[in-house]
Design a protein around this nucleic acid. Sequence first.
DNA 1: AACAAATATTTTGTAAGCAATTTAATTGTT
DNA 2: AACAATTAAATTGCTTACAAAATATTTGTT
Lengths: 152, 152
Amino acid sequence: MPNRNADDDALLALSNQLCFAVYSTALAFNGVYKPLLDGLGLTYPQYLVMLVLWERDDVPVKDIGQLLHLDSGTLTPLLKRLESAGLVSRQRSARDERQVRITLTEAGRALRERAKAVPQGIFAACGLSAPTLLKLKDELIALRDRLDATGG
Amino acid sequence: MPNRNADDDALLALSNQLCFAVYSTALAFNGVYKPLLDGLGLTYPQYLVMLVLWERDDVPVKDIGQLLHLDSGTLTPLLKRLESAGLVSRQRSARDERQVRITLTEAGRALRERAKAVPQGIFAACGLSAPTLLKLKDELIALRDRLDATGG
DNA sequence: AACAAATATTTTGTAAGCAATTTAATTGTT
DNA sequence: AACAATTAAATTGCTTACAAAATATTTGTT
């Protein structure tokens, strides 16, 4: 039996609390994005995929997965929904038929203009100065990468 | 048309990036918790409910929802799963029959001992000092509460 | 060329998460 | 007491998220 005292327990409880803070902040962010994205007909993960495509078009599913930390089991149905919405097209690569490459349709490209209003609403809702925001982001990314190195 | 320059856009993109940082860190945390919780037969949200009950038993669904920022549409099926697992019991309050109160079973109380190993694994995976961890947690909670004030 | 190993995506099954609706019980008002 | 308004849970429908298995293609080895 490891000898653990009250201080140890309090310390350990802290990591539980940090995780819950991240978890509930993610839910809260979703609550702010939702009304902004509803008008575009997008969910938040779909918006993330569109952000990727607006930066670099004609991307294999695998690359989207690496950028967003999502696997194909999540992306395949999501991309099919974007396809039925007329925003992207999915086609097997001729070079390597294992790959499916995602390209924007005209409607997908056009949506970018309407999506430009989204970050303004988010920035306002955060109520943080740019430096604070930047620092928090960097700390989270560093933490995430450590967690990924352990867990996935 | 608002006149927006490149600096504005970069600033606004930052809030998008902060949200993605939170989102992907939540996924990464889940990846670390999963192998630790698998042995207990719990998912992360189920673990959160058990943490609540280990602190204070005999809690209405509504209170659990407020503490965890989850609604009844999420909690009702989750609690039913905990009930079928034999960890909790659900019963209508006699005083107010609209309420369902959740109490731990003997097995639910017993699970607490085995769950004590979980936070150690999380703390190690975070790789952060206690003060850093505490500060990050507090900043996230503050951000979350601002977001909730806007969105939900 | 034959065939094993690796790779990319899809499919299946389970569990969140939330909006909107429904049901039932309680509270408030007249 | 009658009845509207509120409240607590449950239900329905849709969209993530991921593990595990299946399918198809490519690469590596002999």
